[in-house]
Design a protein around this nucleic acid. Structure first.
Length: 265
DNA sequence: GCTAAATGTTGAT
DNA sequence: TCAACCTTTAGCT
């Protein structure tokens, strides 16, 4: 399930399978039949991830824009694909591999101009080397909106979701409700570089792990999912650092988690 | 077997 | 601020 790290990993993996090839596209579910027909048989020239958006570039300036939303997922494999099951929005097949897309918020054929419009309303993505942290700082430092809400705003910062929000704020010892203008520049720079570090490791591992080894009950071997986070979805459980119960509330319609003792307003 | 919740966004109120 | 969108899964019975 998708925050920015998932999207960038998909772009990388799908590029290795598809770039230079001309896959066939189908929509067994029927909701993307027209789009699939327009793209089917065209050569894939590149795949781009920005924030939580994916753009598959096909020959002759047509792009497939995919946003997974909350439930969307890609699955895939090599060889002959299994018979379609359930609600399958899109299947792409080439000579050696297949990819299935289910439940996306967006799956549409767009032009390069459309893509530019999408990117224009996104803030810097910590996973892109070209991203400028100062651009996001200029937004947060002038805002009285809680920093926990600003981090989730894709026009401020692209690719951060609920897990990275909660975990990066814990690691920075900042309470989510602290106003944006009360996060000073050095603290912001630290938050940004921690997000870069965490999200890069998320791409590599294919999952979000934010706890340091010394803060996990069991060391060595693969990280138990129950030990991968400090506060996300740990409401009522003892803080891994101080033992005080982790708090949660709803902020702008999303659950947010923090340690009332380790993190300050 | 059923229900609620989920790493998200959009558009209406 | 809230419902709608869409699908899967965890946690119940």
């Amino acid at each position: 399930m998708p925050e920015g790290h998932t999207i960038h990993r998909l772009a990388r993996d799908h590029a290795a399978l598809l770039v230079g090839r001309a896959p066939m596209l189908h929509s067994p579910q029927g909701r993307f039949s027209d789009g699939a027909a327009r793209l089917s048989g065209r050569t894939v020239t590149g795949i781009e991830a920005y924030g939580k958006h994916l753009f598959y570039a096909f020959a002759e300036d047509l792009l497939l824009h995919v946003h997974l939303g909350l439930y969307g997922s890609w699955t895939g494999g090599f060889g002959v694909p299994p018979p379609p099951r359930g609600a399958l929005r899109l299947r792409m097949t080439c000579d050696r591999a297949w990819l299935d897309l289910r439940g996306p918020t967006a799956c549409e054929v767009v032009t390069p101009q459309d893509r530019d419009l999408v990117l224009a309303r996104l803030g810097p993505d910590p996973l892109l080397p070209s991203s400028d942290a100062v651009r996001a700082w200029e937004r947060t430092s002038r805002s009285k909106t809680p920093i926990g809400q600003l981090l989730m705003d894709q026009s401020v910062l692209a690719g951060v979701g609920n897990v990275y929000r909660a975990e990066s704020l814990f690691r920075a010892r900042i309470a989510p409700r602290r106003p944006g203008h009360d996060v000073d520049r050095p603290t912001w720079d630290g938050l940004w570089s921690d997000l870069v570090r965490l999200m890069r490791s998320g791409v590599k591992a294919g999952r979000i792990i934010t706890t340091a080894p010394e803060h996990r009950p069991r060391r060595g071997g693969p990280v138990d999912p129950a030990d991968a986070h400090y506060v996300y979805r740990r409401a009522g459980l003892p803080c891994r650092l101080c033992g005080v119960p982790v708090a949660s509330s709803v902020m702008a319609g999303r659950n947010v988690f923090w340690c009332p003792s380790c993190q300050s307003d």
